[in-house]
Design a protein around this nucleic acid. Structure first.
Lengths: 277, 277
DNA sequence: CCATGCTTTTGAACGCGTTCGAAATAAGCG
DNA sequence: CGCTTATTTCGAACGCGTTCAAAAGCATGG
């Protein structure tokens, strides 16, 4: 029960540590047009002044992420992280005000890798259903190595008191990155021009919500290689696409209008979109 | 911030200790047709043998629940519970294998009170939309005193590794109680006979899922008296009812059929319904 | 009456996340 | 260079959930 990472089924973006510079800052982005790097600044204690301090911070984060993957979240103690990184516990807390904030960095990176991987795989595909499935499947691939550990992350995300929750934390950079990806999923398809402009404006956020549901499913999925979740995505994606498509027809107008209002007034404001009324 | 219970709208089963037999088993059920009592047996360490042991167990649970309400979950330490109950920490762990299992009892009781309160308020109402809103609003009322504390519970529920999660724990008694309530919400309305039998079979679980969404919203709601959630319920309930109603019409047949399949194959099995295929 | 085997109870001890005052180091300044 | 101030590093210590070996109670039966 030591080498959990071995269950990773996907060949893509396999090296977890390789694509990272010695100073810990992102140096990859081989083919990712927009999308800013994680900018792992929030959640820290104080913005680092010197170079060396930035290095220490990065070192601690790298070490933590490596140990999380190797041993899981609970079994990775702050003392172990500090020891492995060659610093004191107090020093770790100087840069990360709690163990949870280390997850933040983890999640940010994964989201960024997901966006990059998805964009790579989306190139050339025009069909909306296919594009949506690619985007979601790409997430499953990128998240696969962290499945066990992700349960802990999800637990944290479900805590409204936590600053990490993608629901409550409005300026969560990872959320913005993911929503932007889904915007591209939509605009890059031949479905986009046919849709009501107002609805099209909401869709990226809704598709992100759809991803969150998949994530929920995935977290609870215990089948090998989360095969069941993959099946669920194969099955549910065409339905999601169909519902969106049907929204254009007359009969569905009133219900779509109501749903739009409900989402605009009650859902989006809650997840960060500040009254795009 | 001491008397949270004062905001509780329902006058039902007010005394925390009163309606409990000397042997600790439930003896209330003044007017609740089906619905088994919480049966706070699971999650314990070993089934108690003697009378005195059952008393000790009940005393610890009562004390814990009282302190949770008074101080919140995190600030209520196991040592404090033990001290307040007049036992040792080790003894508390003899009856409850972890602090989480104390929540179980808490949640079970709340669910039971909700079912009772909702049934009382449902009497005489036939309109499905109204009935659904009553059931959900009743939950909000019953849960109101525990809003702050509930965040912690939700966090626990979102952990797939926890035995408490209503999602992963198939035989969660609270879930069965709640689903049964929604079955009555449906069957007691004049909408029920008009629906497709197969769909009607799924609906109680789906309405419970709908409640879970409301709970999610509620947990994150920071407005006073969770007024925003109440508004959300007022707004979303008619829409849910309308969608169910529309499912009868021809145009919606194919999409409803697909959704039904998806739910049967992927959703219900995950939340405990063992392949009602 | 003691011996035996069970359930119940105890509280010291462990490992954890986290805090905090103080030491070490670096940076500005006359 | 010394002095002062800010930044960074340290590690002992605190309070927590949890564990465990041992003690205490308690029934049974010889």
């Amino acid at each position: 029960m030591d080498d959990l990472a071995a269950t990773n089924g996907t060949g893509s973006t396999s090296a977890a540590n390789g694509t990272r510079g010695a100073d810990g800052t992102q140096v990859e982005a081989p083919a990712a047009p927009p999308a800013a790097p994680p900018a792992e600044s929030r959640g820290s204690r104080a913005q680092p002044k010197t170079d060396k301090s930035e290095q220490t911070r990065a070192l601690i984060l790298e070490t933590a992420m490596r140990l999380f993957q190797e041993r899981g979240y609970d079994k990775t103690t702050m003392r172990a992280i500090a020891a492995e990184a060659g610093v004191s516990v107090g020093n770790a807390y100087y840069y990360f005000s709690s163990k949870e904030f280390l997850i933040q960095g983890f999640y940010d990176r994964m989201t960024y890798e997901h966006a990059a991987d998805a964009r790579r795989r989306l190139a050339g595909t025009k069909d909306f259903t296919e594009r949506l499935e690619i985007a979601v499947s790409s997430w499953l691939d990128c998240a696969a190595p962290y499945h066990e550990f992700a349960a802990q992350f999800f637990r944290t995300a479900a805590d409204p008191n936590s600053a990490l929750s993608p629901f409550s934390n409005e300026s969560h950079p990872a959320r913005a990155t993911a929503v932007e990806l889904f915007r591209e999923v939509l605009t890059g398809s031949e479905l986009a021009p046919k849709l009501d402009a107002e609805l099209a404006e909401l869709l990226p956020d809704l598709l992100w919500l759809n991803l969150m549901i998949v994530v929920l499913y995935w977290v609870f999925d215990r089948t090998p290689d989360t095969e069941r979740t993959r099946e669920y995505v194969r099955r549910s994606t065409p339905m999601v696409a169909r519902i969106i498509n049907l929204s254009r027809y007359r009969v569905f107008r009133p219900i779509v209008r109501d749903a739009k209002g409900l989402i605009q007034d009650f859902i989006l404001p809650t997840i960060g979109k500040t009254a795009a009324k």
